[in-house]
Design a protein around this nucleic acid. Structure first.
Lengths: 225, 225
DNA sequence: GACAAAACAGGACAACCGGTCTGTTTTGTA
DNA sequence: TACAAAACAGACCGGTTGTCCTGTTTTGTC
């Protein structure tokens, strides 16, 4: 008679959503959002399951561990975000300096528009996870490296065209990424994007201006984007 | 007879250390170290108790909650660290630019010496906690603000002496702090301090050089500290 | 030395964490 | 339609978390 009890079919309360690949995407969406807003350790799997409307079994099927989920967020979402908001725009810009300047200005404008600063996804996760686990650190370091390399390559391209001959590509890229990351850190902490503008203007009047006398012009063109 | 059992005096295994203020300091030391190395959420009260050699009762007496402990670390330790490594040196420097440059170089040298990058304490906690709790955020934002203000004040002092007349104090300070913070983020993620040197050199050849033709000189003087 | 207050000791607890397990349903393929 | 594999559902567990509580010891004060 015990077999009769244990073999009793369980009542299923949740319907299946026959949406292939949609469930994994939804979990990644929620995880990306949560890791960005609250951080990795502060986001529990239970929270993610609840907000994503996903059961534990489903989550574990796509991502065996929490680490695997975070790794997927880093490699698929964070890397894509950097590619979209930084690498591609810089590549398409008329010059490296103009590309960096326009991204800076665009992000500052976007932050002022939505009136809330959540910080740079890459920096947020990098601070929390790069010392916690080597796999995390390597993945995050790779994104940082690709980010800088894209800017350095653009400087090299400019040099191929006879411009920026006195500029070291690696150093320029390092300063661009560092000042942006640091400015975002302060903007997030102060919940005020104005420091981003301060940094952009300081760069404009110093490093960001070429040495051929375009310093005045840049200050005027700055509002164009 | 039950009273006889419940009233039985408990055996005390740990001796008292009649060291007033010493216990609180020890907890703060351990917490500062742990929050810096592993972060706030990844550091459990149990770990802190164990490594500090402190019982739960003692810890709870000095710091009723984990949040109170973190707030004390921020206000007493992180603020002091920024004061010690940045604000005081900049104040004592011959000029703002020279002060910023020397701190940058000193930190880079220190990181290369110990061969391991744990990141900026302020930035580490700021990323993890500034969105988690308003009290955290305000405390951290205040330190960032004081940091920038110290540099801006130094620029103003330079201007009082007839120098740096074309430099905006707030913007200069914002760029200095941002580029340092961002460079430390990358250095921590890559576990390589060379990006700090890259940023310093980029600043030296651009923003960090005054406009009176000292650009050459700075590159030579750079190794002096 | 009396005595109130501060400074601890140490256990207990409820909530929660991430992960596992078994079982059911859908899907791809022939 | 048969059937193996993938995709899920949902309960379950051991360990950990932060906090609280009661009791003991030290300290300061008159």
């Amino acid at each position: 008679m015990s077999a009769e009890i244990t073999a009793r079919p369980k009542a299923r309360t949740q319907k299946r959503t026959n949406d292939p690949e949609g469930m994994r995407k939804k979990v990644l969406d929620v995880a990306e959002e949560a890791f960005q807003a609250r951080g990795y350790h502060a986001s529990s799997m239970g929270d993610l399951m609840a907000t994503a409307g996903v059961t534990g079994g489903a989550l574990h099927h796509h991502f065996p561990t929490k680490k695997a989920l975070a790794l997927a967020v880093i490699e698929e979402r964070v890397a894509a975000a950097v590619e979209e908001t930084w690498i591609a725009p810089v590549r398409m810009a008329p010059s490296a300096r103009e590309g960096v300047r326009s991204v800076f200005a665009a992000v500052a404008a976007e932050l002022e528009r939505q009136g809330f600063v959540r910080g740079c996804p890459l920096n947020n996760l990098a601070h929390e996870l790069s010392l916690a686990d080597p796999d995390f650190r390597i993945a995050l370091a790779g994104i940082f490296s690709a980010w800088r390399q894209a800017i350095a390559d653009k400087i090299s391209a400019d040099q191929q065209a006879g411009r920026e001959l006195g500029t070291d590509p690696q150093r320029f890229a390092a300063l661009a990424v560092a000042s942006y990351s640091g400015a975002m850190s302060m903007a997030k902490t102060a919940q005020d994007a104005s420091v981003l503008r301060d940094c952009l203007m300081a760069l404009d009047q110093g490093v960001m201006s070429s040495k051929t006398g375009t310093r005045r012009r840049n200050r005027i063109l700055h509002r164009a984007l």
